[in-house]
Design a protein around this nucleic acid. Structure first.
Length: 776
DNA sequence: GAGTTTGAAACT
DNA sequence: CAGTTTCAAACTC
């Protein structure tokens, strides 16, 4: 333990417990100050830091990771908890922890740790007894082992801080702190990987690799390192806990991973944003950071790892896991953190019901976000579905049980699936919160489907999954596979290969499918989502915004049955649809078809331009919301968005970027788009779903062009939408820009207030009920 | 629960 | 790119 130095003797004197803690603190204090300073400074620098930090994070993780790995996770977690309880009274470190906690809630221990970590970052110093526990010794001493002593010190601090923080958090929840926490959390995430013993090491390696490639040196700030490391630990823990998915995802492709993370992240962010939105700062923050970091990182990742799927395949699964995680984190960077948060939250929500805390967050939304998009498909309630989903998610409270059940089921799958980002988090957590995202991720579909089923009333089947017999669950026929989730017990499939054990096969298959159809795993229905509803678009008239990507080809179902994907998705048929005798209650295409499509196109375009613009705006709003979240997570968002576009498809399994790249569309947009999309995405937000949905469309459209006019295009896609989306993006961009402006503030945030805003957002989201989200 | 219908996915 | 086959979900009984 920290036993060693008791510099704080005086302090310790006060309390027996304290003494140890104090000793820690004292030891730590030196470091912490740095941290605090760092934090304070960092805020502005944060962006830079983020970027730098990223590198630093990565780098640090490396070193730290291994080193940290040494540290016993469990101990930390335990300690943190015990400490927390014990320390409860200690100094304050605010609320950040709360955020962190929420974020990481998945595992109580984990969350605690995270709390401490985050708190520590923010917090200061002091007092924290608890952590002293075993870990401290390592850390305290400066981590003999750890190359980066500072980190160790930090870690130890973190732990202590965590405990304290936890306590503090409980006691106090300042928005600022929260903000900080969020911020810290973000940072942490990246770092998180490293610390953890198990995953941490691996992660660390991966991170380091990535980092090395990308940024190369991370070292930058010890203080940062500390935070990052902490984050890494947390992340790692989370990842580990949640793990499989991440590993898989990350392993596969950076891009995919990104996508997932992004998706989940998006959702998460969306939720957060929805809840708090306000925090543009965070967004800005994220945006700026994301823009840079994400893109760069992604690129790097791709370059380094990603590009080579085989490689990752080759890599041992463990490594993969690590890498993937790392990749995810790295790639996603912050996004990862976000994802984790989401997952954690979800988990916490679903799984943790009992555990406590958590509740508030809107994870559901998050999950919903992604999945919702896909879920939008949900049959029944079309709109309702969406809402329901959201509600379900959000409600962790209300319907937690249901949600849990669903989530869990989904989550399990997810976890197994591991492939998807979404999944992994959930899994580990046990509960699967991620599923919601499903959603995310996209990953999205499966969860949605699951939900759908449950929602739909299959009810019993909430957990139900696939019943594939010949496809081995390696084709899109398989809902699980399509959703990017591993098949689980509920499945009645035969000869199923969609299991973690066959991860490689699953991934490779996914890649193939994605290669074939980049959007294969993307949400089928793009929705304006809430925006449309909100906007008041006629429910019946499917909002221009919401549409089935490909459009249905129904002939006998009149688009009134689930057979119809549009109907299932709760969206009206669009020009893209080739359905006959369409009677889609959400919106008919017939009318359109009847009208000369061209005419329509023209008219629609104009109209669409109008409506769509509205939609776009809405979307943009949504996205913006999302973005904020995304933004919060610095890196991911952009990637997410971008990736989401690209990724969406990937999304499900964490596909490697390649597919996306391969896909001209994706690739194209990927880089440049990423930025733009990111921006747009950020702006828009609505929900991950919306974003996702949009993204795909956008991508498609984008590809197509702006032109927009191709009203006629057979697909019918109203090009406009995409355009709009694109166009929106500009608007969104504007939003982003605004955000960016705000971002600058972030730096100030570093100070807290600003950062706090950003942080707050997250925090708020957490703290604030999702309601806040209301994206509206 | 078994069988049929349906339309997407996959294949050629 | 179009047509056909395969597949599993959705649906019906």
């Amino acid at each position: 333990m920290d036993t060693p130095d008791r510099h704080a003797a005086p302090l310790a004197a006060s309390r027996a417990e304290d003494s140890p803690l104090f000793s820690f603190i004292n030891n730590l204090s030196p470091i912490e100050p740095l941290k605090s300073a760092y934090n304070a400074n960092s805020l502005q620098g944060y962006q830079s830091i983020n970027i730098t930090s990223i590198s630093s994070i990565f780098t640090s993780p490396h070193d730290n990771a291994h080193k940290e790995s040494r540290l016993p996770k469990s101990p930390l977690g335990e300690i943190s908890e015990s400490e927390v309880s014990a320390e409860g009274s200690k100094t304050n470190k605010p609320a950040k922890s709360s955020n962190a906690v929420r974020l990481f809630t998945c595992t109580s221990t984990v969350t605690q740790e995270t709390h401490t970590v985050t708190c520590s970052d923010v917090a200061d110093p002091p007092t924290g007894p608890p952590c002293d526990l075993a870990q401290p010794a390592q850390f305290d001493n400066g981590s003999p082992d750890h190359n980066t002593t500072p980190c160790h010190g930090v870690r130890s601090d973190l732990k202590q801080d965590k405990c304290r923080k936890l306590d503090i958090v409980k006691t106090v929840k300042n928005t600022v702190e929260k903000r900080k926490c969020l911020f810290s959390t973000e940072i942490q995430l990246p770092d998180g990987g490293l610390p953890v013993n198990d995953g941490g090491d691996v992660l660390g390696c991966e991170w380091s690799d990535l980092i090395s490639t990308t940024s190369g040196e991370l070292l930058a700030f010890d203080s940062t390192m500390d935070d990052h490391q902490r984050g890494m630990h947390l992340a790692a823990k989370n990842a580990e806990s949640c793990g499989y998915l991440l590993s898989k995802l990350t392993g596969d492709v950076e891009i995919p991973d990104r996508a997932h993370p992004s998706a989940s992240a998006q959702v998460y962010y969306q939720e957060l944003v929805m809840a708090e939105d306000q925090t543009e700062n965070t967004q800005i923050f994220q945006d700026s950071q994301q823009m840079i970091s994400t893109e760069e990182i992604q690129d790097n990742i791709y370059d380094t790892n990603g590009c080579i799927p085989l490689d990752y395949k080759v890599e041992s699964q463990q490594q993969r896991g690590v890498r993937r995680r790392c990749l995810v984190f790295e790639a996603a960077g912050f996004s990862n953190s976000v994802v984790q948060k989401e997952t954690v939250e979800d988990l916490s929500v679903a799984a943790c019901k009992g555990k406590g805390h958590v509740p508030t967050q809107p994870r559901g939304l998050r999950g919903i976000g992604l999945h919702l998009n896909a879920l939008a498909l949900t049959p029944k309630g079309k709109m309702a579905c969406q809402d329901p989903m959201a509600s379900a998610l959000l409600p962790s409270l209300a319907s937690e049980k249901d949600v849990h059940g669903k989530l869990l089921s989904a989550g399990e799958n997810f976890t197994h699936s591991g492939g998807e980002l979404l999944e992994f988090p959930m899994d580990d957590c046990s509960a699967g919160g991620f599923p919601l995202n499903d959603h995310v991720s996209s990953q999205s579909v499966s969860p949605q489907k699951k939900r759908r089923k449950t929602d739909n009333g299959d009810d019993g089947e909430a957990c139900k999954r696939c019943s594939c017999k010949k496809s081995k669950c390696l084709k899109l026929y398989c809902e699980c596979f399509a959703a990017g989730v591993y098949c689980s017990e509920p499945c009645s499939c035969q000869g199923c290969l969609n299991k973690p054990i066959h991860e490689e096969i699953v991934l490779s298959t996914r890649k193939q499918i994605e290669f074939r159809n980049p959007l294969a795993f993307a949400p089928k229905v793009i929705r304006m989502s809430d925006a449309g509803l909100e906007t008041g678009e006629d429910p019946n008239n499917t909002p221009a915004s919401a549409r089935h990507k490909r459009g249905c080809n129904c002939k006998k179902s009149s688009c009134l049955k689930k057979y119809c994907e549009c109907y299932q998705g709760g969206v009206g048929c669009s020009s893209n649809c080739r359905c006959e005798s369409c009677k889609n209650t959400f919106g008919r295409r017939d009318a359109e078809t009847e009208l000369t499509e061209e005419m329509k196109q023209e008219g629609e375009e104009t109209e669409n331009s109008g409506k769509e613009k509205e939609n776009d705006q809405q979307k943009a709003n949504v996205q913006s919301e999302d973005h904020p979240l995304l933004d919060l997570v610095p890196i991911t968002p952009p990637f997410d968005l971008a990736s989401s576009l690209l990724k969406l498809p990937n999304f499900s399994s964490a596909k490697p970027p390649r597919p996306s790249k391969a896909r001209s569309g994706n690739s194209r947009s990927s880089a440049s788009k990423a930025t733009t999309t990111l921006q747009s995405c950020k702006s828009s937000k609505a929900a991950g779903s919306a974003v996702d949905e949009e993204m795909p469309d956008i991508l498609k459209e984008a590809n197509s062009p702006s032109s927009g006019v191709k009203t006629t295009s057979p697909n019918g896609k109203r090009v406009s939408p995409p355009h709009n989306a694109l166009s929106i993006s500009p608007n969104r961009k504007g939003g982003r820009k605004l955000i960016l402006k705000s971002i600058p503030s972030f730096p100030s945030l570093t100070g807290d207030s600003n950062s706090g805003s950003a942080m707050n957002n997250t925090d708020n989201t957490f703290n604030a009920s999702p309601l806040a989200l209301g994206p509206s």
